[in-house]
Simulated scan of single mutants.
Amino acid sequence: MKDNKYIYVDHSATTPVDPRVLEVMLPYFGQKYGNYSSLHGLGREAYFAVEGAREVIAKHLDCHVDEVIFTSGSTESNNLALKGVIGKLGQGVHIITTQVEHDSILNPCKQLEKKGVEVTYLPVCKDGTVDPEVVSQAIKDNTVLVSVMYVNNELGSINPIKEIGEAIKKKNSSILFHCDATQAVNYLDCRVSQLGVDMMSISSHKIYGPKGVGLIYVKKGIKLDAIQSGGHQEKGLRSGTLNVPGIIGFGKAMDITILERDNNIQKIIKLRDRFVNQVKIIIPDIILNTVLDKSVCSHANFCFVGAEGESVLMYLDIEGVAVSTGSACASGSLDPSHVLLAIGVPKEIAHSSIRFTFGKNNTEEELNHILEVLPVAVKKLRDMNPLYNKG
């Protein structure tokens, strides 16, 4: 590891907590330790702090404070959206999603299929996005819910959420539209008034906030069944003691992210584009899976043909560079990325993928180090691969 300093380019997996976020959280681990639900002074202090964070987030999402429900993160939010709708409407209904969603959408859909729910998994374009017309054509008489991610976590592809929502409502205004916006907040407008979504999931730790806290926006009037029972917190949708320090950090992280978003985008896109251009020059036989003009500025997903992705990851790790072979939530799986397979990457090539995701703290010096060690890693692995055509 160079100078004992880790170079982190895996910001789609998680982000470091911004020091300003940590600063506002710290008092609520110590002297301000009250339970949000308690009626005494310490409880009221926690209550007002949480509600203050809720107001900040609601302002940035352009929704009512009552429509922001705190959860443990996007996985819980996604599960609540899918299972909560089906719990209210019963079986024999139809859900639409895409083949490239996060596992926190795909796996609940598989569970619901076993309970009699019909699920359509839509194909995507070569760039990883779904065509609104394809969504519209998949709608049936019994369709009750459509769930489409805003930004793909592996490719960075941006889905036309507003247009998809318009296509859905034009076909049947009673169909609910859920969006997993976990990867979008750093880079895109997530105001629900502009997107036309009925539900939306967001996670704090993707926007330089703490882990273990997120939210689901639920449009007023939509009824969901809770997926866990207890003390009736969060309007009965999410029972359990509220994570007061986490929620306060989440609110601060959201505020910083929105206010500094444009500046961060300009910085990150310069780093990412320089990286992509240099990799194309210095490493032969590569496939860039991210379509740059259809994606957020942070992502660069490559296949280094002939070099197994996990081995590249481990080599870079030794050199002090943190990357990913795909979704961090599926890192224990030996299967090739379902996202890459969905966009037509052959299985044997998909195993050679590496996802680089840049963040606001990355520097030119760090980029230079990556460009120094990456070609060495790929060449060494290719030289050891008897099946790789070195000619």
Score class of each variant (00 low, 15 high):
Tyr33Asp: 15
Ser77Lys: 00
Gly73Ala: 13
His94Lys: 07
Glu67Ala: 00
Asn78Tyr: 09
Arg44Asn: 10
Val21Asn: 02
Val93His: 15
Arg44Pro: 05
Thr98Ser: 05
Asn79Lys: 13
Gly52Ala: 01
Ala53Val: 12
Tyr33Glu: 15
Ser104Ile: 08
Val68Asp: 03
Gln31Asp: 13
Ser37Ala: 15
Arg44Met: 13
Gly43Val: 12
Leu106Ile: 15
His40Ser: 03
Gly34Gln: 02
Asp103Thr: 13
Gly73Thr: 08
Ile57Gly: 10
Ser104Pro: 12
His60Asp: 05
Gly43Ala: 13
Pro108Ser: 10
Arg44Glu: 14
His40Val: 07
Phe48Leu: 12
Ile69Pro: 06
Ile95Asn: 01
Lys59Leu: 11
Gly84Leu: 07
Cys109Asn: 08
Cys109Asp: 07
Ile95Cys: 01
Glu55Trp: 05
Ile95Glu: 01
Leu80Pro: 03
Ser37His: 13
Phe29Trp: 03
Ile69Glu: 01
Lys110Pro: 02
Ala46Val: 03
Val24Gln: 03
Val68Ala: 14
Thr98Glu: 02
Glu76Ile: 07
Ala49Asp: 00
Asp66Arg: 14
Gly90Phe: 12
Val50Glu: 01
Glu67Asn: 00
Pro27Ala: 14
His60Ile: 05
Glu67Phe: 00
Leu80Val: 09
Tyr47Val: 04
Val56Leu: 10
Val100Trp: 06
Val85Arg: 05
Cys109Val: 06
Val65Lys: 08
Thr75Ser: 11
Gly90Cys: 07
Arg54His: 02
Gly90Asn: 11
Leu26Asn: 11
Gly73Glu: 11
Pro108Gln: 07
Gly52Gln: 04
Thr75Trp: 04
Ser38Thr: 14
Thr75Glu: 13
Ser37Pro: 01
Leu22Ser: 12
Ile69Gly: 00
Lys110Asn: 09
Asn35Pro: 09
Gly41Ser: 08
Val93Lys: 15
Gly84Ser: 07
Lys110Arg: 15
Asn107Thr: 12
Thr97Arg: 08
Gly43His: 03
Gly84Asp: 05
Thr97Ile: 10
Lys83Thr: 04
Lys59Phe: 09
Val100Gln: 14
Glu67Gly: 00
Gln31Arg: 06
Leu112Cys: 07
